[in-house]
């Protein structure tokens, strides 16, 4: 089901909101202003914790798009959020609020990574994926999930002992699928060789069935 919302314009000339569709991982959206026409276009694929808590789009369906001509010119217009692929109207907003914002430059590697929507900066950003992970287990089985989790987090095949042990824990419910990812990400092995983990938008995210 297609859902979305225009939240606000910002003083740094962005428009923010979210859009998600159960059948598609990320949406390509556009904002149409009643007088100026197309005001912004881009992907709804950013992480927002409140969306994860509300179980919307795995938490990875927010957008922050630069608008033209500028936010002040748009605040009195009717703004329409549209899905580019189907042309469907997702949300219409009049008198969109405008909030204070800074367009901060991206000067460090950490800032660049933090703004990259294809990798996660903390495993907590996958907390909206619990149902997706459980679905993977149901469809592909416990063994396949443990194998996928090892490749995803530790970038190596699982050993037989871990496969049997974590398989048992998953089957009995001693650990959840998300819990297994947390345990692996908290392991000495991962800490000694940390790596960027793909977000649900990234091609390296192996849990979409």
């Amino acid at each position: 089901m297609l859902k979305g919302h225009i939240d606000s314009l910002t003083t740094a000339d962005f428009i923010e909101g979210w859009a998600t569709d159960d059948d598609r991982p990320t949406l390509h959206v556009e904002i149409i202003a009643s007088e100026d026409g197309k005001a912004a276009e881009g992907r709804a694929h950013l992480f927002r914790p409140d969306l994860a808590d509300a179980k919307l789009g795995l938490g990875w369906c927010a957008f922050r798009l630069r608008v033209q001509p500028h936010a002040n010119a748009l605040r009195r217009q009717t703004l329409t959020l549209r899905d580019v692929e189907t042309g469907a109207v997702v949300h219409v907003r009049e008198d969109c609020p405008i909030r204070d914002d800074l367009d901060l430059p991206c000067n460090t590697v950490e800032e660049a990574i933090a703004s990259d929507p294809t990798v996660i900066t903390s495993l907590n950003q996958l907390r909206g994926c619990e149902q997706l992970l459980a679905h993977f287990v149901t469809r592909r089985g416990v063994g396949e999930f443990v194998r996928a989790a090892y490749v995803y987090v530790l970038n190596r095949p699982v050993d037989a002992t871990a496969l049997a042990g974590y398989g048992r824990m998953l089957r009995t419910g001693a650990i959840t699928p998300f819990g297994l990812l947390s345990v692996l990400a908290d392991s000495d092995e991962f800490r000694s060789r940390p790596r960027q983990l793909a977000s649900p938008n990234g091609t390296g995210f192996v849990f979409r069935v």
């Binding site: 907390r127 824990m169 009995t172 419910g173 001693a174 650990i175 819990g179 947390s182």
Partner: peptide, 15 residues
């Protein structure tokens, strides 16, 4: 409660 989802717990306690 979200912090429990990443923890290892006895299955009966988790349920």
């Amino acid at each position: 409660p979200e912090e429990l989802s990443g923890a290892v717990l006895p299955p009966d306690l988790r349920v």
